[in-house]
């Protein structure tokens, strides 16, 4: 995998070698007129967006623009905040995820999440990765679990580094390794969508490059949504980009188009560094 393919390439030209184009275009999550309130504060206003399967979608925008808030709505992580209220429709494969009958636990098994700061549990590397499969009952026996763990660690591109010390604590790894471990942990539950909230902001440039490369690989199997404050990163890893500003979705489109030929003047100001 080289770094050039992400630069300006549109996914349709990147993927068809292995996958049918139909698959790529499929809508995974569609949000319509989403409003989010924190108590009295109106944090997200009228956001409508369609997120595609097997695509990396980047949310960019200045701090406090609501991009992380919106991301957390996609797997109902905001449920844990008492004062948060979500209105509008967010559908995953056509099912409203805020429907009363939806169990957030099942939802989050389908929509995994990776956080800004690497947060490995204070357990062994193995147990970190096995946590999700265990609670969801994905493995029938130890051998299966071993296999899942290995596959997840391989997909997290960290297998070679940790395969000899699966029993040592996950907190003992370096920052970049921890974040890749967290990604491996997230993919171990076989999610369909992977949400990443500024996954590289706590990492050094080398670790960032490794994680970015990993994201690009993950696109083969998942729909990845990444929040980032770095426009370069958005340009490098994503095929679609959404620009948020003051709680509004200002512009959404092909990454190449957003970065080279933005429609909205606000997008242009942000990209050229006038707001941020």
């Amino acid at each position: 995998m080289d770094a050039t393919n992400a630069k300006g390439n549109v996914p349709m030209y990147d993927a068809p070698m292995r996958k049918a184009a139909v698959d790529v275009n499929e809508n995974k999550i569609s949000a319509k007129d989403v409003q989010v309130y924190y108590g009295e504060t109106h944090a997200i206003k009228d956001v409508s967006v369609d997120i595609l399967d097997k695509t990396v979608t980047a949310f960019i925008g200045p701090s406090g623009c609501g991009k992380s808030t919106f991301l957390r709505c996609l797997n109902r992580m905001n449920d844990t905040i008492d004062s948060c209220r979500v209105e509008g429709l967010i559908a995953l494969d056509g099912e409203d995820i805020y429907d009363k009958r939806v169990d957030p636990v099942q939802l989050r098994a389908k929509v995994g999440m990776v956080f800004q700061k690497p947060n490995p549990f204070p357990k062994s590397i193995y147990d970190n990765v096995a946590y999700g499969p265990r609670i969801h009952g994905l493995a029938r026996n130890k051998a299966e679990l071993d296999e899942i763990v290995e596959r997840a660690l391989r997909r997290g591109a960290i297998w070679n580094e940790v395969k000899d010390r699966l029993d040592s604590p996950g907190t003992g790894l370096s920052g970049g390794q921890q974040q890749r471990l967290c990604i491996a942990r997230a993919v171990a539950t076989e999610p369909e969508v992977l949400l990443m909230d500024e996954p590289c902001s706590a990492l050094d440039p080398i670790a960032t490059a490794q994680v970015e490369e990993l994201i690009d690989e993950l696109r083969e199997n998942y729909s990845v949504v990444i929040v980032t404050h770095s426009m370069q990163q958005a340009a490098r890893v994503s095929q679609k980009t959404a620009f948020f500003h003051l709680g509004n979705l200002v512009e959404y489109g092909e990454t190449s188009q957003i970065f080279t030929n933005p429609v909205d003047p606000r997008t242009e100001s942000y990209i050229t560094g006038r707001i941020g």
């Binding site: 996958k19 995953l92 429907d99 099942q106 076989e190 990993l214």
Partner: peptide, 22 residues
Amino acid sequence: MTDATFTGESPKRHGSLTASDA
């Protein structure tokens, strides 16, 4: 990223969100 030897395999599809399994 040499250990990314895993080749694409479609993730296991989950059931519907509204019907909770046993």
